[in-house]
Design a protein around this nucleic acid. Structure first.
Lengths: 107, 107
DNA sequence: AAATGATATTGCAATATTACGATGATATAT
DNA sequence: ATATATCATCGTAATATTGCAATATCATTT
């Protein structure tokens, strides 16, 4: 017990949930917003900006990276993380079509 | 350790994250979708439809209720849960404006 | 080549989430 | 009134998430 029973749900439902999960933490919301405001983006800036320890920021970045929302250079010094525009728009549409599909009223 | 440091984030970031959290589980996505398709909605239908135990469905419904997404009759037999249209649209706009604000490209 | 600076990884503790059996509450039917 | 049906709550086990110190990695300086 305790683990989400992903196998009983559709792929679409699982994917939506997984995408939502990435945004289900204020740090990741703040990170996405901060990165979008910068010309180039380095993890240290984020550590200063957000106020969490560097490993924690790194972990959050990884969660965002996992679903393909970040692109850029990922190795070495002075990394440049950027939001993948294409993926971001795809996600926006994904959410929007879900929101739009829930529109009937019954009460 | 272990708990989200909500106090270091803005109210807006916390609210967005909290709303995302509600959708960050496939059962809750499925529940929202199922309810929107029904004329009236009873928890037992959901138990049959989703395939989780009744207390688990009840818990998930509660998470959705907490952010005000459900309205209807909540006591007695044959409950009628419905999605609050106003709140749902509000949430859709909230997400949409967040998605739209992340649109600059740096790489 | 050693030092430095920036990010990643590991390991672990604290807390949150998920799930369900048992039980409780409440409304309707018999 | 008793039985039944439906949903809520409690208690608890299993698992996931969050956060950080310590450490590792890796590119750039010196």
């Amino acid at each position: 017990m305790g683990a989400t029973k992903t196998h009983i749900f559709s792929i679409r439902h699982n994917e939506l949930a997984q995408a939502a999960k990435v945004m289900a933490h204020p740090a990741r919301i703040a990170i996405l917003e901060f990165i979008s405001k910068q010309d180039s983006c380095i993890c240290t800036d984020l550590v200063d900006e957000i106020g969490l320890a560097q490993p924690t920021i790194s972990q959050h970045l990884n969660e965002i990276k996992k679903i393909g929302l970040l692109k850029g250079t990922f190795e070495g010094k002075n990394l440049c993380y950027c939001i993948d525009q294409e993926k971001w728009l795809e996600l926006q549409q994904f959410f929007n079509s879900f929101f739009s599909s829930i529109n009937q009223n019954c009460c």
